[in-house]
Structures are given as structure tokens and as C-alpha cells.
């Protein structure tokens, strides 16, 4: 009972401030533009191989393009569920609302699990919206150039399903991060810096060598791409692009979210609230 109530309360907390729709709009717009733009570029490149050859020496095969475009939802959109998860936790510290939250539910672990589970659902919902945006914009752009949208293939929908799962797991990673780094500004900086700069560079650097590549594939972004099964990075990556099995990638994401949340729950979450 307490868990279900706490879960309901977390969803209410989420939907009663403006943050959720602002960030959701941003996510949808961002991935739709990226997928539509990239789809259109690829369409143009396949139509004009001679002109495109200057930009890319290896002409891209048209099969596989569609899922690549669709996967923008998770491969670049994953930062949003992480932000949501981190904000759900750090907001309570920032606005000192842990006091009322813990007065209502003195079993603190219940409050944190409610955040974990609610962000799992919210991440999944973001995934659905993001893939709707990339499929809508991407398929439109591809179809305009006569490229197969692959929407009639079950594999495409399986990829989308795994992408939604990845987004859900990224939400739990956000909760874990927020419970470890309770300072809201610091948490946001870490999310942005890690996802946009640190990890892409490290992934690229790791892929240059076989030994580091076998470690690099466990990076959360790499694991996420492995789970989804297609990513801009796997095309852009130079050198050997080792990836995990999709289920291994899923386990890595799940593990990161779970372990960070557990550590946060045993440390910062148990501190005196004053």
C-alpha cells in the first residue's frame, strides 16, 4: 500500500510542475529534427552519390538506414530521461521538500523506490514519444527520397521496443545519479558533460584499441546502443566497434541504475534532514 501511494505521489509530483512538458517538448523537437534532418541528408546522399562522395568515401547502404534514423530517439535523446530522473531526486534536496516527503512516508527507502519505479515508467513514456517523433519525421524524410522506411518489418519494431526499454532504464540511472550527487546544479552539469562530451570522446578513444574497446563497450552509452541495436555512433565510430549483445547492454544499464540508486539510498538518502 505504502509503495503504491508513494508511487502515485511521485507521478503527481512529476506532473504538477512545468518541468515535464518543457523538457518533453524539447526532447521531441530535438530528436524529430535530428532524425528528419539526417534522414533527408541520407536521402539526398543516395540520390546524389557523386556529390556525397566528397563528404563520405564509403557510400552508405540503404538498408539499415531507417532504423539508424529512428534510433536517434534513444541514441541522442537518452539524456532526457537521465535529466528527469536526476531532477526528481535533487529537486527534493534543493527545495527542502524531503522534510514533507519523509513526514508523509517515514520509510525513506519507499520514497526512493517510488522515484526509481516512476522514472522507469516516465523514461518509457519519453521513449514512446521520442520514437514516435523520430519515426514520424525520419520515415517522412526517407519516404520522400524513396528509401525503404522498414516500418513493415518486425525487426524495426523490436528495435523500437528495445529503444523504449533503454529510455526507461536511463530514467533509473538518473535517479541513481541524483541520489549520489544531490546538488542539483552539479547533477545537471554531470549529466550534460558526461553524455555530450566525456562519454562520446572516451568511446571514440576506446575504440581505437582492441583492449580498450573491450572495456569501452561497457560504457553506459555503448551499452545503450547495444541494447537498441543501432546507433549513429556505431556508424560514425572509427576503428573496431565492439558491442555487447542487446540483452547484455540492457543488463549493464539496469545494473548501473540499480547499483547507483542502492548506494544513494544507503548514503545521502539516510542522512539527517535539516
Amino acid at each position: 500500500m505504502g509503495m503504491l501511494r508513494a508511487l502515485g505521489s511521485e507521478f503527481q509530483k512529476f506532473f504538477t510542475t512545468r518541468m515535464w512538458w518543457l523538457l518533453t517538448l524539447l526532447l521531441v523537437g530535438y530528436v524529430a529534427l535530428s532524425a528528419g534532418g539526417f534522414g533527408a541528408f541520407l536521402g539526398w546522399a543516395t540520390d546524389n552519390p557523386a556529390a556525397a562522395a566528397g563528404a563520405s568515401s564509403t557510400p552508405l547502404p540503404t538498408d539499415g538506414i531507417a532504423v539508424l534514423v529512428y534510433s536517434f530517439a534513444s541514441s541522442i535523446g537518452y539524456v532526457f530521461p537521465v535529466l528527469f530522473g536526476a531532477l526528481a531526486v535533487t529537486t527534493e534536496f534543493r527545495h527542502k521538500t524531503l522534510t514533507p516527503s519523509f513526514l508523509v512516508q517515514p520509510h525513506r527507502a519507499t520514497v526512493l523506490w517510488a522515484k526509481y519505479v516512476s522514472q522507469l515508467f516516465i523514461g518509457a513514456a519519453l521513449g514512446v514519444l521520442a520514437f514516435a517523433a523520430t519515426v514520424g519525421a525520419g520515415a517522412g524524410a526517407l519516404a520522400a527520397f524513396g528509401i525503404d522506411t522498414a516500418l513493415d518489418q518486425p525487426d524495426t519494431w523490436a528495435l523500437i521496443g528495445r529503444g523504449v526499454l533503454a529510455m526507461a532504464l536511463w530514467g533509473t540511472i538518473g535517479v541513481g545519479l541524483g541520489s549520489l550527487v544531490t546538488n542539483q546544479v552539479a547533477a545537471i552539469v554531470i549529466v550534460i558533460a558526461f553524455t555530450q562530451f566525456v562519454e562520446p570522446i572516451v568511446r571514440l578513444a576506446a575504440s581505437l584499441n582492441d583492449v580498450t574497446a573491450s572495456i569501452g563497450k561497457f560504457l553506459p552509452g555503448a551499452a545503450s546502443d547495444a541494447l537498441v541495436g543501432a546507433s549513429f555512433y556505431s556508424v560514425a565510430a572509427i576503428g573496431s566497434a565492439q558491442t555487447l549483445e542487446w540483452w547484455q547492454g540492457g543488463l549493464v544499464l539496469f545494473g548501473i541504475g540499480l547499483v547507483t540508486t542502492l548506494i544513494g539510498g544507503l548514503t545521502t538518502w539516510r542522512r539527517d534532514v535539516s
Binding site: 505521489s9 503527481q12 504538477t16 510542475t17 529537486t91 527545495h95 521538500t97 514533507p100
Partner: peptide, 14 residues
């Protein structure tokens, strides 16, 4: 202490 972006009614509902 309350979240500044939430209304009084919603605080109580939560």
C-alpha cells in the same frame, strides 16, 4: 519549504 513551481492545492494533493 515547498516547491515554488507547484500550487498549494497540488502540494496538498501530492
Amino acid at each position: 519549504s515547498f516547491h515554488p513551481g507547484r500550487t498549494a492545492r497540488n502540494h496538498l494533493k501530492v
